[in-house]
Write a protein that binds this DNA or RNA. Structure first.
Lengths: 167, 167
DNA sequence: AGAATAACCAACTATTTTAGTCAATTATTA
DNA sequence: TAATAATTGACTAAAATAGTTGGTTATTCT
């Protein structure tokens, strides 16, 4: 299966977007700063999310990304499928031709497992996630924490801003 | 998470072992032939399974591997954990220090998912798997199929036997 | 009009994991 | 003593992961 940090980053970024979208489009550099993911990596992920129709983009100052649908209608599984391609656990990608054009011994087991995971992740929407108390607390910390940890001017911009971009 | 072909091969091989263990130890070369996995790769996997105490080995002619415990007591999750190390889906391996020593936004979500998968795979024993009709059918096919596909002497030994081993 | 902002795009890269191979040794049995 | 089969260790090709680098294009603010 594919459940790597790629999918986790994507879900985290989308959740950050939902939490901050009341003030218009959310820029990737803001998400990068808050969630400590590299901006260029986010760009790749959001390119896929946009192609899948999950988000819409606005260019220029004040621009950023916004959800194409209500947070209630976006499930975690949609996000993971958009960036990770598949959630399938079989060797044959479900085709059941794992061995001489027939099923391998454990084909059904991996198929069942895939369905389990699929159903679990399909049952959780961004709206539900954003409403959780534990997540609200962490988001509040992230929104107010930068000043606390990095006193005034010395924020390690390397982590969140583009470096070495020439004019 | 780690759910790769490594874990799938291991479960398939262990299931093959259970199906054929009534006639004493099962050799890796037999499993390699039946399940079409390379012998050297199986050796690596069974070294881990032995270290974890899931199987016992018998050397010499007629030797092979046998289960250390009743098939009822070996869950699929045990096998995957033995070869894949962990089934954890969080970035911080469950330590909840994913971001500045505190939880990242989605930590709880991945934790819940890990638990789901864990429970599912813990609920399936080798005995239960081996008793399934679909698996019995496939095993029967595998036990009788070699003669049908590779007439008499011309079995492609490359796939299942060691090649180039000098004295 | 010009500077800043921010999305968009393509190519490249270091590191890790996967899925093995290759070569040899040790133990056991016929 | 020959064959069988586990055991060990080092190596490797290919793919995936997690980015980086260097730009271009569109929009808005001054």
């Amino acid at each position: 299966m594919k459940l790597s940090t790629k999918g986790r980053y994507a879900v985290t970024a989308m959740l950050d977007l939902v939490i901050h979208m009341d003030e218009g489009p959310v820029s990737l550099s803001d998400i990068a700063e808050r969630q400590h993911v590299s901006l260029s990596y986010l760009e790749q992920l959001f390119a896929k999310l946009r192609r899948r129709g999950l988000v819409a983009s606005t260019r220029g100052p004040g621009g950023g990304y916004s959800l194409n649908d209500a947070p209630e209608n976006v499930a975690v599984v949609d996000i993971i499928l958009a960036v990770d391609e598949n959630i399938d656990n079989t060797n044959c990608s479900g085709a059941a031709n794992c061995q001489h054009d027939e099923q391998c011994l454990t084909h059904d087991l991996w198929q069942d497992l895939s369905n389990q995971i699929q159903e679990f992740l399909a049952g959780i929407s961004l709206a539900e996630l954003a409403s959780r108390g534990s997540i609200k607390r962490i988001a509040a910390r992230q929104d107010g924490v930068e000043q606390d940890i990095f006193p005034v001017t010395e924020m390690p911009s390397v982590m969140s801003k583009r470096v070495g971009v020439s004019k």
